[in-house]
Structure formats: structure tokens, C-alpha cells
Amino acid sequence: MSTTGAQEDLAILYPGGVFPAACASRTLLDHVVSKWGVLVLVSLAERPHRWSELRRRAEGISEKMLAQTLKTLEADGLVHRDQQPVMPPRVDYSLTAAGQEVAALLTPLLAWVAVRTGDVAPNA
């Protein structure tokens, strides 16, 4: 296949881009596949979580990074933030329909990483 044919195939597969440096989809890709983004999305695929549950679940994440990750994923339309009008304040996080779609794609990837880590990165 020629280079031009391959480029045309990519244009059909990815009509919005992803490969051009200025493509806006790169920002979303960065948010979705960041270490913390993946862990938050897959955790929320199991069930809604409160902030403190997510912090315990994604061991090693700082409060600042969790807050930033949740805010970013919410702005991307992947996470829903539900603040309850109760005392003390209660906030639950869940996935939107788009968040459920991407989490369904990420879950097998995370499972593969868990199984293959020793084979691919023995020093990890």
C-alpha cells in the first residue's frame, strides 16, 4: 500500500484527526489515557464513588491530582459530579454515557497490563 493510501485509510478511520499535532482530540486522548485518568474511569465503571473512596482506590494519587483529574474528566463530559444538599456535604462521582463507553474500552487494557506486566516490564 502506498503512503498516500495509508494516509487516506487513517483519514477514514480517524476523520477528526488524532495524528496531526494541532488536533484537539489529542487533549482528550491525554486526559483519558493518563495514569490517573485510566484508574479513575475504570474505578467509576464498577460503581459511583465518593471522592475519598476514589482517593483510597487509586493509591498514590495526591488530593490535588485527584481533584484535577475529576475536574478535567467532568469538563470532558466523561464524569458526572452529583453534590447532595446535605450536611455534611456529600459528593458522588459516576460515569456519563460517554464515560461508560471509554471505560469499557480501558478495562480490557488495564486487565492486559495487570496480567502482562511481568512479561513486558520485569523491572516494574
Rank of each mutant, 00 (worst) to 15 (best):
Q84T: 01
T107W: 03
L110A: 13
D76N: 04
V40D: 01
S43T: 09
L39M: 05
G37E: 03
V79P: 02
W51S: 02
A98H: 08
S52K: 11
L110H: 06
R26N: 15
E59P: 00
P48F: 01
G17H: 09
S62T: 15
V32T: 01
H31Y: 06
L28R: 13
A98E: 13
K35I: 00
H80P: 00
L10W: 06
V32F: 09
L44I: 02
D119F: 06
T4E: 15
R55P: 01
L10M: 10
A75C: 00
L70Y: 08
V32Y: 03
W112S: 12
R81W: 00
T107R: 15
A6T: 12
F19V: 10
P15A: 10
P89L: 11
Q68N: 11
I61Y: 04
T27D: 12
D82F: 00
D9H: 09
G118C: 06
S62V: 03
L73C: 03
V113Y: 12
S34M: 03
A97L: 13
V42T: 15
E8M: 09
R56Y: 06
G37L: 04
I12V: 15
R81N: 06
G99A: 08
T69L: 07
P108Q: 09
A21S: 10
M87Q: 11
D76Q: 09
R47Y: 05
D119S: 14
T107H: 00
A124M: 08
A111H: 12
A103I: 05
W51D: 04
I12L: 15
P85G: 02
E8D: 14
S2L: 07
K64V: 11
L29H: 07
G77S: 03
L109F: 11
T96S: 14
G60L: 11
D82N: 13
A6K: 14
A98N: 10
R56D: 09
E53D: 13
H49V: 01
P85C: 02
G60W: 07
A24M: 03
Q100C: 02
A97D: 14
A11M: 10
E74W: 01
V120G: 05
R90K: 13
W36R: 06
L44T: 04
W51P: 00
H49F: 12
R57Q: 11
L54C: 01
E46Q: 14
V113R: 15
T96G: 05
A6V: 12
S34C: 08
D76R: 02
N123S: 11
A21K: 12
R50I: 05
F19A: 10
P89Y: 01
V113L: 10
S34L: 05
D9P: 00
V33N: 08
R26H: 09
L95V: 03
P15T: 10
L95H: 01
V42Y: 03
G99N: 04
V86W: 04
Q83A: 15
V113K: 13
E59S: 12
L105H: 11
L28Y: 04
T72Y: 02
H49G: 01
K71D: 14
D119C: 07
V102M: 10
G77P: 02
V38S: 01
V91Q: 04
